[in-house]
Design a protein around this nucleic acid. Structure first.
Length: 361
DNA sequence: TCCTCTAACACTTTTGAATCGC
DNA sequence: AGCGATTCAAAAGTGTTAGAGG
């Protein structure tokens, strides 16, 4: 294939576009209030982050990274079928960035097919040695994607960044699911949860923990026995479905006839939250592509920058936390933190906050 | 008492080495 | 010998839930 020189004019840095691939799935979770399980050993996200890129220079190398940004400065609790503010957020855990395993790769590679961050894992273990992204449970985050032109992960820190984020990817980190509607959605969409969907949970309910034998070594799966026909040994989840419908009815009850906009006005944010539906009122999802023009290099250690800027001060005292992401975005743009020039000279800052991932599979 | 976290569980999907056939 | 397709065991990953602990 003849190799022609890249058309530099057509692929300026500012023309990079990122599109959230599974946006519909994210939105369906977002409407209910996305929850992400975090575990000591690391848990994958579901829905996972999958994006497509355009506008890159085909022959220039890029490094693609993701980190998690605090959506607000609150800690939450699940009470009476809804999320409520439970106080101020915990101090920021160690900031980690997940680098896409294909990095660095030429722009043509990134634009060829969607990028999946399936293997990225979230943990609540601040001493984690596996490079998973560390989060606090019961806090709200959203993934922030960084695209930088660099030939090697080691030169990333000298290259300009472009950052992208998608409001519908905001989630609450939990160690166990709180909202049964989220569980239902996950089971419906996540193939790994099939076992529970098709009757695994039923057997769970019958299981008596106290009678369990001492921790048995995980037996090697026997396909001959594992592949028993569906329906022979498994029971349908009828009871769970009924429960769920009841739950849905009860969780929707506080919405007073489902008038979300009315609720958004009436509800006192300091008392309780139905954050996700409210946020949906604010974002125009007709535009799937979220581009954050960054003509000036962006400092990727947003956690540091976020705390430096008054995102969590007066604004959050006035505005409902449910609006915090939008507020943070607006606030950030007002304060210009996305365009914050990199402090090349501040070695101390750099050494404190790891630039890339320890977590490149 | 309430809330959060952990670990074990049964199951499915994914991965990768071994094998086979061309 | 080399390559692609197939097979299959092991590993990875899932949500649920009882109990521990703060």
């Amino acid at each position: 294939m003849p190799r022609s020189p890249p058309a530099a004019d057509s692929y300026q840095q500012g023309c990079i576009k990122m599109t959230l691939e599974n946006a519909d799935l994210w939105k369906s979770f977002h409407r209910v209030g996305t929850e992400m399980i975090i575990t000591k050993h690391g848990r994958r996200m579901f829905p996972h982050c999958s994006v497509s890129l355009s506008g890159l220079q085909p022959f220039a190398n890029y490094v693609i990274m993701v980190d998690m940004v605090s959506a607000d400065s609150f800690k939450y609790k699940w009470k009476k079928e809804q999320w409520e503010v439970a106080g101020k957020a915990e101090p920021q855990p160690p900031c980690r960035t997940y680098m896409h395993p294909d990095s660095p790769a030429p722009g043509s590679h990134w634009m060829k097919q969607p990028l999946s961050f399936l293997r990225m894992k979230l943990t609540n273990n601040t001493l984690d040695q596996h490079g998973h992204i560390i989060l606090h449970s019961m806090h709200r985050y959203y993934p922030m994607f960084h695209v930088t032109q660099a030939d090697s992960p080691y030169t990333v820190c000298w290259a300009p960044f472009q950052t992208f984020s998608f409001p519908e990817t905001t989630f609450t980190s939990v160690t166990a699911y709180q909202n049964p509607r989220i569980t239902k959605l996950k089971i419906d969409h996540n193939p790994f949860a099939k076992g529970f969907r098709e009757g695994g949970t039923h057997s769970h309910s019958k299981r008596c923990r106290s009678n369990r034998s001492p921790p048995p070594k995980r037996a090697a799966p026997d396909r001959k026995t594992c592949n028993s026909p569906p329906g022979l040994q498994r029971m349908p989840l009828t009871s769970q479905s009924v429960e769920l419908e009841r739950d849905q009815a009860s969780t929707q009850q506080p919405l007073k006839g489902g008038d979300l906009s009315a609720l958004a006005v009436e509800r006192d944010p300091s008392e309780s939250l139905h954050t996700e539906p409210l946020e949906l009122q604010e974002y125009d999802y007709s535009c799937e592509e979220q581009m954050v023009p960054a003509s000036v290099p962006y400092q990727p250690y947003r956690s540091v920058e976020y705390t430096r800027y008054p995102l969590s001060s007066n604004d959050f005292d006035v505005h409902p936390p449910s609006h915090s992401l939008a507020a943070a975005e607006n606030n950030a743009q007002q304060h210009g933190y996305r365009h914050h020039p990199r402090h090349h000279g501040h070695a101390a800052d750099w050494s404190q906050y790891p630039l890339f991932s320890y977590s490149c599979w």
